[in-house]
Amino acid sequence: MHRTDAGAVEISNLSIVFSQRIGKVQQRVAALENINLTIADGAFVSIVGPSGCGKSTLLRITGGLVAPSDGEVRLYGTQVLSPRVESAMVFQHHNLFPWRTTLRNVEFGLEMANVPSAERRERAKHYLDLVGLTSFADYYPHQLSGGMQQRVGLARALAVEPKILLMDEPFGALDAQTRFLLQEELSRIWVQDRKTVLFITHDIEEALFLADRVLVMSSRPGRFIEDINVPFDRPRSDHTRGLAQFGEMKEHIWQLLKPSAAGSELI
């Protein structure tokens, strides 16, 4: 079952069909069709696509939260049938437990993994420190700003020390400045231990800034239409965003996405 030559994430022939009610008619909608993707260990991969193209669903299948209609996902060679230890998720709406303080939110995954409480606390503190929120350990989520909430969500995922980080538009709901800051911070954290990351976004610039490889997705049905290597050196900074090549790549992806984006606006 376990193969050593496998990539960190292997998605093969994956399809998903939803039945959806439009008015009174039940329809079957192919959200994802025949997706194939291999992500190498330690790669930072972004998937960019218009809203509704199924990219979030793809991530949730990879995270073991949704079963595919057809095909399979393997993490380091093991088929995903339910959430696996190898991966941890960061969500778009921070999804922090409102009744837990910041520190206890970060401890959540460790509690589920039955890590003894002393070690749990130490590890949670360490990761809270990594995202710069040590002094907010005893705050409740509703007392934090949107950016802080997402940092806690990131720390919660990092704390279980997964090999793969699955991120579902984590900065999508933040204002532009905070988003820039968090992108740089994620980039900095990633350079330190080079986890495998699958990062979903609809923001082209974000995808280019963060990833080594950007997959462009179309909608209806969701498919990859291009696989782009991102050559920029790390650590990346505002300087990267200003490069001529950065702008050209951004424009190129935008041209690819324009038809689907316009389509979804028009519906």
Partner: peptide, 11 residues
């Protein structure tokens, strides 16, 4: 979503 989050952490 909170239930899903807990599930994603293998609760």
């Amino acid at each position: 979503q909170l239930i899903e989050t807990a599930r994603s952490f293998r609760a």
